[in-house]
């Protein structure tokens, strides 16, 4: 199925959770936050939330800033 990930189309396997996608992408789970369709997916809910076709996902982290 196809989702929008950080503004770009991306093909992902079916029955993929937020947590599994984060791991699949090689990210360190403790250093990212996830928004699904403009709503935060809390850290403790990532394993429970399954992605659907057409979902829009934002994956963010912390960078240098003032």
């Amino acid at each position: 199925m196809k989702i929008q990930l950080n503004g770009e189309a991306r093909e992902i396997p079916a029955s993929c959770t937020v947590a599994s996608l984060v791991t699949e992408l090689g990210l360190r789970p403790e250093q990212v936050a996830v928004e699904l369709n403009r709503r935060l997916v809390r850290r403790d809910l990532r394993e429970k939330v399954e992605l659907q076709d057409g979902d829009e996902l934002e994956l963010v982290t912390l960078v240098g800033g003032g």
């Binding site: 992408l25 936050a33 240098g64 800033g65 003032g66």
Partner: peptide
């Protein structure tokens, strides 16, 4: 110290 929130760069190696 302040930090900013930005999209993860998925192209770069982590």
């Amino acid at each position: 110290v302040t930090v900013a929130v930005r999209r993860v760069n998925l192209d770069a190696s982590q």
